[in-house]
Simulated scan of single mutants.
Amino acid sequence: MVHSILKDKPTKLFLGLSAFFVANALIAESIGTKIFSLEKLFGIHPSNFTLFGQSGLAFNLTCGVLLWPLEFVMTDIVNEYYGPKAVRRISLTAVALISYAFIMYFVAIGVPPADFWISSGTQNGIANMQTSFNAIFGQGMRIIIGSLVAFLVSQLVDVFIFHKIKRMTGDKRIWLRATGSTLVSQLIDSYIVLFIAFTGVFSWQMILAIGIMNYCYKFTMALLLTPVIVFVEKRIENYVGHETAVKMKRSAMGQEEPETTAIPVAG
């Protein structure tokens, strides 16, 4: 059974894409506690502008946004070759494993630290290792819930729009359906997490302003990553063969049943 799975290229490809998708999502959630300056990253002074009456704004973003655009690229690739059922499957798997990871983070925070470990970082300027550990891994519950809900909803929206565009364009213009679906789903993702996590904490003007800044970054990344989608499509076709790639795409659209696969992933 295992050998037959490992010999099937579409199945091996799905396993690889799924593993990267879940790992990338978990890493993005884990590093999301750090906020970085986009302007400083490019060696320029932070901007100071006003939006919706909120002054002193700059492009300060969570490190999670460095990886989230890749999730939407992966979503579109899986959607193209395996269909919406496969996207929903790996999305739910990612949410389940991220939730498990955060439960383990909180368990790790709760266990009593060894006395020597608490002061073990003093020579590196860390006065209390337990406090630092708590600060890094102890994200607020509203932020965690908001992020997971935003991720799941935006994935479903991405799948829906992707297939709507594909039914109009056929197998051509993958760049159009991938970019179009990502631009809409990223907008929804940006505001769901903000409203769940910060309603009652920030004013709605501040939430709108932060959301627009986040979306500007995601919008730009979606455009910049468009060639990556075209490149990956060509690599996949070279890997599985043109005929198999065509069959996979048709199966993903529900136009025909897949021939014989070790793991059924498309409806």
Results as ranks from 00 to 15, higher is better:
Phe137Tyr: 12
Leu176Phe: 15
Pro227Phe: 01
Asn79Ser: 12
Asp171Gln: 08
Thr122Tyr: 10
Val65Ser: 12
Leu51Met: 13
Gly83Ile: 02
Pro69Asp: 12
Ala222Phe: 00
Lys40Ala: 07
Ile35Asn: 14
Ser47Pro: 01
Asn238Trp: 11
Val232Phe: 04
Ser154Leu: 08
Ile44Asp: 03
Ile136Phe: 14
Gly170Thr: 06
Gly138His: 06
Ala197Asn: 05
Ile207Gln: 11
Gly211Lys: 15
Lys234His: 07
Pro258Leu: 06
Phe116Tyr: 14
Ile207Asn: 06
Ile192Arg: 13
Lys172Thr: 10
Thr182Gly: 11
Lys40His: 09
Trp175Gly: 00
Ser251Phe: 06
Ala58Pro: 08
Ala127Thr: 09
Ser120Cys: 05
Ile44Glu: 07
Leu187Thr: 03
Ser55Tyr: 09
Ala86Tyr: 02
Ile44Leu: 02
Lys218His: 11
Lys166Asp: 02
Val159Phe: 09
Thr131Lys: 15
Thr226Asn: 00
Leu224Lys: 00
Val95Gly: 02
Ile174Leu: 15
Ile35Gln: 13
Thr226His: 01
Asp115Asn: 11
His242Trp: 09
Leu67Arg: 13
Glu71Trp: 03
Gly170Pro: 07
Ile90Glu: 02
His163Tyr: 15
Phe42Asn: 05
Ile161Ala: 01
Tyr105Asp: 13
Val228Cys: 05
Asn79Lys: 05
Ile161Val: 13
Gln186Leu: 15
Val240Phe: 13
Lys218Leu: 06
Lys9Cys: 04
Phe102Asn: 05
Val73Ile: 14
Met1Ala: 15
Ala58Ser: 15
Val193Trp: 06
Phe20Glu: 07
Pro264Gln: 08
Ser190Ala: 15
Asp158Ser: 15
Val184Ser: 05
Ile103Glu: 08
Met1Lys: 11
Thr33Leu: 05
Lys166Thr: 15
Gly180Tyr: 12
Val78Gln: 00
Ile143Tyr: 10
Ser18Ile: 10
Ser147Thr: 15
Ile31Ala: 02
Thr50Cys: 02
Phe198Arg: 03
Phe14Asp: 00
Ala25Gly: 09
